[in-house]
Design a protein around this nucleic acid. Structure first.
Length: 359
DNA sequence: AAAGCGTGGAT
DNA sequence: TATCCAAGCTT
């Protein structure tokens, strides 16, 4: 039997949600497929960023079967710019699993949902509660922050995972799990924000231990983070006599897996950028090039390191390109290149090529 | 179990 | 410019 405090927390949060909850595209239907797509896109990604991708995705891939039969390149192209591309690859794989194992219908069983690639505990709870009103708890970034403050947990959230999950489960309203989970996320996104939380208008302020102790600005505590390295990269835009450019498709695993790129690699200590490019192209593609003028320098920050791409025009001299350290190589024209999914840093290179050639 | 995995926005 | 963080999952 839940305590009266828990009942009061549920009631006050749901009251607030019915007045101030957000109107979001994926809340307008209960189609588990559409909700699944939104949940995956929203992983580590802001609502504002997701909305146009979500709308476009449902036009391109309106049903699970459509997604399952699409080419991976189309899927990655639809994801281009969203980041964390394993999400798109896993979505594609999971769609095939659902077609093969669940008759193209999104499963309603928690264990089956958790078994799908790319779906963890939070995403499973988000889908099952939103689509089917199942009482499955969630613990995303918003909920972690709200609960950390509610209970004044004075260790970084990663050290309190078990406690936070238990809190989320105990608070969850078994009679209105859909609205409750959505409400908890909205509270974190709109009032219980990382900076300057709006405690004065928060429905939970009278129950919040952080507010009670004036700790709301100190919690949650920061996670410790390792400093990120900076890598210098030589990149080649290799031209042939037909005016085509050589691009390669990265391997499925790891950073930017399955995306296309301009070939290149890390500048070794004491090496010039030109020598690096010549060496990398020989090692990765088995061809000889001459390195010409610099096209552009691109600085880009990933999560775990930063890069400076030194991009040079190159001329193909000899040898047929081979996919030695990649999955595929291809000669393309500037007009064709938009069909291929590229990471953001490479899109900047394409834009520079367009400017240079006035297309 | 700590590290790897993108990008855009806010400060 | 540097840093943090946004509906986390996988290995």
């Amino acid at each position: 039997m839940p305590s009266s405090a828990v009942l009061e927390l549920r009631r006050s949060l749901l009251d607030w949600y019915h007045q101030f909850g957000r109107d979001l595209p994926w809340r307008r239907n209960r189609d588990p497929y559409a909700i699944w797509i939104s949940e995956i896109m929203l992983q580590q990604t802001q609502v504002k960023t997701v909305i146009p991708y979500y709308e476009r995705w449902l036009t391109l891939f309106p049903a699970i079967a459509t997604l399952a039969t699409a080419e991976q390149q189309q899927v990655l192209k639809a994801w281009q710019g969203l980041g964390y591309y394993a999400r798109a690859r896993n979505l594609h794989r999971a769609a095939k699993v659902i077609v093969e194992q669940h008759g193209a219908t999104f499963p309603q069983d928690l264990a089956a949902v958790l078994n799908l690639p790319g779906i963890g505990r939070t995403t499973a709870g988000g889908i099952l509660s939103a689509a089917f009103n199942q009482a499955v708890a969630i613990l995303d970034g918003n909920v972690k922050r709200v609960l950390t403050r509610l209970a004044a947990i004075e260790v970084p959230p990663s050290k309190a995972s078990k406690q936070l999950w238990e809190l989320s489960e105990n608070l969850l309203d078994p009679e209105q799990p859909r609205d409750f989970n959505q409400a908890l996320m909205d509270l974190g996104a709109t009032l219980c924000t990382p900076q300057n939380p709006a405690c004065l208008i928060c429905p939970w302020s009278t129950h919040c231990r952080a507010y009670q102790f004036n700790l709301q600005s100190e919690l949650p505590m920061f996670e410790t983070r390792a400093p990120i390295p900076h890598k210098l990269i030589g990149v080649a835009v290799i031209w042939n006599d037909e005016g085509q450019i050589l691009i390669d498709r990265r391997r499925q695993e790891g950073l930017l897996g399955g995306l296309w790129e301009f070939p290149g690699g890390k500048v070794e200590p004491g090496e010039t950028v030109e020598a690096c490019i010549q060496r990398e192209i020989q090692e990765e593609l088995g061809i000889e090039v001459t390195v010409g003028d610099r096209l552009i320098t691109v600085d880009h920050a990933y999560t775990h390191f930063r890069v400076t791409l030194n991009v040079h025009h190159c001329r193909h001299v000899s040898g047929a390109p081979q996919p030695i350290e990649c999955d595929e190589v291809r000669w393309v024209t500037l007009a064709e290149i938009d069909q291929f999914p590229f990471p953001k840093a490479n899109v900047q290179i394409i834009e520079a090529l367009r400017q240079a050639s006035n297309v």
